[in-house]
Write a protein that binds this DNA or RNA. Structure first.
Lengths: 216, 216
DNA sequence: AATTGTGAAGCATTTCACAGCT
DNA sequence: AGCTGTGAAATGCTTCACAATT
């Protein structure tokens, strides 16, 4: 598949381009050059051109990129053009924050189902979406055509949640639990681990003491 | 500085090693090999050895690594050995989830101050920490020796929050706002952008249509 | 015998430099 | 003249393979 030749890092930059392009469109800017995109995204112009060129030649030489056209193209590349639905597993505080976040404004990825195990939560509504029991996951996800899963449960339940999502036919997972999921390799898993982020941040602080490790 | 020669990716793996080592210590495992670490973390044994070797020779050839010793060493490398304090800017739902998260159990990075602009929030307590007005940021952060900042405000306020944190002497920032911060380069910024994560995840889903990108 | 530590090889990604269009 | 698209060079990270050590 061609898909696998494109760096994951490049894919992660596409949403940034999209955001900047949408701002530009809102300001009625019709043409934008790679160096202007660079200015607004913080990436280099060459990198932007290379990223876009992975998917075809969207620009006009000597001119730049048509903001509306490029925006539509990137939406399509990402598969956002007709809205993407996600299932949230875990209706705790993080889950609540995520659903508020996703429901706000006209997002192209929305949370279309929420699951939890707690009897206190099942049956309640969060941002207008009923909380279902995790045992209904396969049925609900298939009914609603949900392809993305978000795991926001404690580490101890993460593996099981991942397996349930896999059974529900989910193709990609955003995992906030501090646990390594062991799932079929065709499921794409992206981890966001707040402990890792915070602890590694400490390294870049004066409190970190790498200097005691000098060999010389 | 020697620090800059060590891959950021390697630094991000250190907290994972730390977690696995602490589990091992709790199971009274005293010695662990790079291949056992690999098994438990999902990284390769060579990579683990190389990561650790950046900071010195912590293992014993023919034997493995002493779990307690290695755990202490990594803590020290990251600067976690005497606890790290973070300031949270933004007491919204995400901020609330983060503070719950950080306060739970015996974390080595804790939220030691919370800031917001809303008069409804300033003066209230979240997880036992008083919410201060952002105008007190410099004073409070310096008093408490806070070196890490967490931005959990809307995009429109992110830049200003970053500048206030910079003035407060913060050295590293975890930014959840979908905005590129323009701050002095000595401040290390790590971005976690939920929109980027969700939108890029959509690419790895069957709904994505890179195949339509044929020459045309 | 087993496992670490590490130079060298292999990949992947980014940057450079310029040819190719408009 | 200006800006894109792209091979080639440079850089950075990972994997390999094995010498060193217990």
């Amino acid at each position: 598949m061609r898909k696998s030749k494109i760096p994951e890092a490049a894919i992660k930059r596409l949403p940034v381009y999209l955001r900047v392009l949408q701002d530009a469109i809102a300001s009625e800017i019709q043409i934008i050059s790679s160096s202007e995109l660079a200015e607004r995204t913080g990436f280099s112009p060459e990198q932007i051109r290379k990223d876009l060129a992975y998917f075809g030649a969207f620009g006009t030489r000597g001119v730049g990129y048509d903001t509306a056209l490029l925006s539509r193209r990137i939406s399509r590349i990402l598969g956002l053009h007709q809205g993407v639905k996600a299932a949230l597993v875990g209706a705790g505080h993080l889950g609540y924050a995520l659903s508020r976040y996703s429901q706000s404004r006209h997002k192209d990825v929305t949370i279309a189902a929420i699951f939890d195990v707690s009897p206190q939560k099942v049956g309640t509504e969060i941002m207008g979406i009923e909380v279902n029991h995790v045992s209904d996951m396969a049925q609900v996800c298939r009914e609603r055509g949900i392809k993305i899963g978000i795991i926001a449960v404690p580490a101890s339940e993460a593996q099981q949640s991942g397996e349930l999502l896999a059974e529900a036919g989910i193709e990609a997972i955003l995992n906030f639990a501090p646990a390594k999921l062991r799932l079929p390799p065709e499921i794409f898993v992206q981890n966001i681990d707040l402990t890792i982020e915070l602890q590694s941040l400490a390294y870049y602080t004066s409190a970190s003491s790498e200097d005691e490790t000098q060999a010389e």
